Amino acid sequence: MAADMSGWPGRVIVRIVLLSRWAMVPLFLGLAFALALLVVAFAARLWAFALQIFSLSETAVIMELLNLIDLVLVGGLMVIVIQSGYENFVEQIDRRQAPESPAWMMRISFFELKLKLFASLMAISGITLLKALMRLETDVSETQVRWLMAASVLFLAAYAVLAFTERFAGTSRRAE
């Protein structure tokens, strides 16, 4: 009987820890709602762009296109975080019950997920830097551009370190 009493607190703690993953569900649902808002923002921006297309300069057209691309990249990043986050932290998605689920979700590793996230962040950072460079003569300071360049280099370095460590870890796992 004493063994049962000493074991139940451990089982309760494990049960609480395992159930705590469900606290992530409202966060993923919130991101899904935010993604819907992003779609609305994209549509509004696209509509406004279409209405002024003939009065915009070439530079302004490029800036608007970069803004739209930026929104698309953020949306893609959100989809990756929502779907893979749910699958990694809450529960596996049964592919038989979700045939519309993308094929990449079934075969993506945690390392590949990190690479996709870093690639998205680097693309967003690159577009932000490009937009700043285009506005350099009007309303962006050289200091701001330097910080954006530093952030881009930092993302690139982190991406390289991540790829290197995964390759090194993969090589040592195969050697064992």
Rank of each mutant, 00 (worst) to 15 (best):
R95E: 10
E100H: 13
M134T: 04
L38H: 06
K114W: 09
L19M: 04
A60N: 03
M24S: 05
L46S: 10
M149D: 04
R95V: 14
V74Q: 05
S84C: 08
L73G: 07
L115C: 07
R146M: 10
Q92A: 14
Q83S: 04
G30F: 05
M134D: 03
K131Q: 15
K116M: 11
V72T: 08
A123R: 09
F111Q: 09
V61R: 06
S141F: 03
L115I: 15
V140N: 01
L115P: 00
S109F: 09
R146Y: 01
W147R: 14
S55P: 02
A123D: 07
L148N: 11
R21S: 10
V90L: 07
R21P: 05
A32Y: 07
V72M: 03
D70M: 15
Q97T: 11
I69P: 02
K116N: 05
V81A: 04
K116G: 00
F111V: 05
A98E: 12
G85C: 10
M105E: 00
L46A: 10
L130C: 03
S55Q: 06
P99Q: 08
I16V: 07
L136E: 04
I16G: 00
N88M: 11
A132K: 10
V74M: 08
V90R: 01
F111K: 04
L46Y: 12
E112Q: 15
A43M: 14
L130Q: 01
L66F: 02
L68F: 14
L129S: 13
A50P: 01
A23S: 15
F89G: 08
L115Q: 08
L77W: 11
M78F: 11
L37Y: 08
A41E: 06
T59A: 09
M122I: 11
W22P: 01
A41K: 10
L56V: 14
L35G: 03
M78Y: 09
E58M: 12
L46M: 12
A103Y: 07
T128V: 14
L37C: 13
Q92D: 12
L35R: 05
L38R: 07
R135G: 05
E137Y: 08
S120Q: 06
Q52I: 02
I127P: 01
E112D: 15
M134W: 07
F54W: 02
E64L: 10
F111E: 13
L77E: 09
K114E: 06
A103H: 11
V72R: 01
T143R: 13
P26I: 15
V79I: 13
L37W: 10
L29K: 08
T128N: 05
I82P: 00
A36P: 00
A103K: 11
A48G: 08
S101A: 15
